[in-house]
């Protein structure tokens, strides 16, 4: 079936089988391998992308369901000149990643989280990323990274970026 969709502002027309998952289209047809497959069962959130601005798990959406829609992946988050997004900067400076496998999904989810709630409490952040699993960090520094980005987006001096070892 022929579908047309926008991925990171670039229009693509592709012929896909209806059973192709969106995450496979992104990774295999478009070679955008920043979007990861962790569990393949809608649990871990590593495959999170934005579909028309909403964070969704691309392992549980058919590519044909994205026909006519707009997809955003982690590859679009940094500026064209390599300038990091406040979330990327936050994860880097706060040790919000160890192996990095969960990070693209965490960041795509957090983009929508901060759009809906620019100044979330710690509890709201933890609920907000409850669909994303991290096997390395213990989450504390991920929460710090999101708090950093929230502060930076609001023009507030982010709190100390000293890593928290708990």
């Amino acid at each position: 079936m022929e579908i047309t969709l926008k991925v990171n502002e670039v229009q693509h027309t592709l012929d896909v089988e209806p059973r192709t998952l969106l995450v496979h289209l992104i990774r295999e047809n478009l070679n955008l391998t920043g979007t990861h497959i962790g569990c393949d069962t809608t649990t871990c959130g590593a495959c999170t992308i934005l579909l028309d601005g909403k964070s969704v798990k691309s392992c549980t959406i058919l590519a044909v369901q994205a026909n006519g829609k707009s997809v955003r992946t982690i590859e679009s988050v940094a500026g064209a000149d390599g300038h990091l997004h406040p979330l990327q900067e936050g994860f880097k400076d706060n040790h919000g990643l160890h192996c990095g496998f969960c990070t693209p999904g965490m960041i795509m989810r957090s983009i929508e989280l901060l759009e809906n709630n620019p100044n979330p409490t710690e509890e709201e952040i933890r609920w907000g990323i409850s669909g994303n699993l991290c096997r390395c960090t213990g989450y504390n520094n991920i929460v710090k990274a999101i708090e950093y980005a929230s502060a930076k987006n609001r023009g507030v001096e982010p709190a100390s970026t000293e890593p928290q070892f708990v």
Partner: peptide, 12 residues
């Protein structure tokens, strides 16, 4: 709704 799955699942 807060107890149904997680935010990404609730978006769909």
């Amino acid at each position: 709704t807060k107890l149904i799955a997680d935010p990404q699942v609730r978006n769909r």
